[in-house]
Amino acid sequence: MISYQKFRIYIDKFFHVIVYLFSFIALIPFLSIIWTLLKKGLIHVNPNFYTQTSPSATEAILANLSGEIIPGGILNGICGSLYILLITIILTVPLGFFIGVYIHENRKQKFSIFIQYISAIFYGMPSIIIGITVYVFIVKSFHSFSAWAGSVALSVLMLPMIIRATDETLKSLPTYLKESGLALGASYTSVILRVIIPTAKGNLLTGLLISVSRILGVTAPLIVTTLGCSMVNWDITKPTSSITLLIWNFSNNPCMADMVWSTSLFLFIFIIVLNIIAKHIAWKWKITLPHE
């Protein structure tokens, strides 16, 4: 007869094994993705990969026939992604931040509740729907695919993330911070700008970087808004490439299939680096508040 105490120990051990087993199973797809990316992606990684624009289909076919590495790189994609991202950040961050502050400070106002609903809906909105909408309103109206149309589409996707990140960050701050600022006779704006934001800057920046890393991987809206371009383009009104668009284009051409892995590896590492920076900022700028 097993005593009750021993039974509890066995149950405890059993659940330990289950937890480790499931964690390992969950890791398998992640590890296999990383392994495949490294194995297939490293082949094309050379200095030209970052300094040259994407190859044409003919160049890729000739390289395949002669068994050589496909020439060219993803410079147009890197520049395009950074350019579109920069415009997106400029459009989104101030707006998202102020809406986040407004929601946090007026949670029960009707207009605030309305914005919260809209923000929640857009947070989970499929990106292709946003892309199509921007296509109808901007691309068709201006008769051109463009970098700014892509940025608007990404902004609609990013805005709810910034709003939520701001709101969650402000929620995590204790009320006494605001009260003690106001008790000194400060105006409400002054307290927000000089007390609340400096205290929350680490979390706000972390939220921004995580939103950026999520936006970087978005493809569908860019297909219908920026279209892509084989050259580096800095004209905001012209079609522009991006890393994800290059992955999409390469995957549609069997001769360029190998480039998919290298480009994906680049994007993967870029997002990993962004996440590491975000974690570092969160750790470095973490402010341990009194009474925590």
Partner: peptide, 15 residues
């Protein structure tokens, strides 16, 4: 500004 307040728990500005 004329009527200052000190709270129950110390609350210096962390930043």
């Amino acid at each position: 500004r004329r009527i200052g307040m000190v709270f129950q728990m110390p609350n210096p500005f962390p930043a």
